[in-house]
Computed example of a mutant assay.
Amino acid sequence: MVGQIAKITGCRAIGIAGGPEKCRTLVETIGFDAAIDYKSDDVRKALREYAPSGVDVYFDNVGGPILDAVLTRLARGARVVISGAMSQYNDQRPKGPANYMSLLVNRASMTGMVVFDYEDRYPEATRQLAQWLAEGKLTSAEHVVEGGLGDFPSLLRGLFTGANTGKLILQL
């Protein structure tokens, strides 16, 4: 969603996903400029190719080695937004970014973002997103699984393995 909003507002969007099919979807269906397969590509090398002047804005919900790789490719004044850390949730000892000195060297910033902090702007966001969806500028990718409440634990585990493509929905 963030990459699509970036494209709509005139930015270049580079996605990072797991597997060739997900990367192909980012570029061919959703309209990203490029996609990096973190399972088979050298993320740092691919970022050098796709963002030769560095990364200006990085929206992170993974953390770990992917965040570390992006931190090595920041442009001066870059902004890193942390909205999650999927790679860290099940670790006994979560690790912080190893390449945090890049924030200093590049005069960059890293900020946490929780959507509930913007609750007062939900109506505005809803109107804008609905407009973009109606205009065909925004694609809603959903992975719907029909089942019962007993299916919830296995579906939840699938979020941590990348089994879904798009927003995972359990339809009861």
Rank of each mutant, 00 (worst) to 15 (best):
G84S: 05
L26F: 04
Y118M: 13
L138W: 06
A78S: 06
A51M: 05
A141E: 13
E124Y: 07
F152Y: 12
G63Y: 04
I36C: 03
Y118K: 15
T9W: 08
W132T: 06
G136C: 04
Y50A: 14
L133T: 14
M110G: 02
R121K: 14
L67Q: 08
K22R: 08
V43L: 11
D60K: 01
P94I: 06
L67A: 09
Y50K: 09
Y122K: 05
T161V: 14
A108H: 00
F160S: 05
A134R: 14
L47E: 01
L159T: 06
N106T: 12
P123V: 08
L172A: 06
E119L: 11
L170W: 02
G63W: 10
A34S: 13
A108E: 00
M110E: 01
G147H: 09
L26N: 05
W132Q: 06
L104K: 05
P94N: 04
V55H: 00
M1Y: 12
R93A: 14
L149R: 07
G84T: 03
G162P: 02
C23W: 03
A6I: 01
F59Y: 14
V115M: 12
R48F: 11
V2W: 05
Y118C: 03
A75V: 06
G64W: 04
A6W: 04
L129E: 05
T161D: 11
G96I: 11
Y58T: 00
W132R: 03
A13V: 03
L138V: 12
S154W: 08
I16C: 02
F32I: 02
L149A: 12
T126W: 09
R48A: 14
V115N: 12
L71P: 04
G3Q: 01
M86L: 15
P94H: 06
P65W: 00
T139R: 13
S40P: 08
R121C: 11
I30D: 02
T29W: 00
N61I: 01
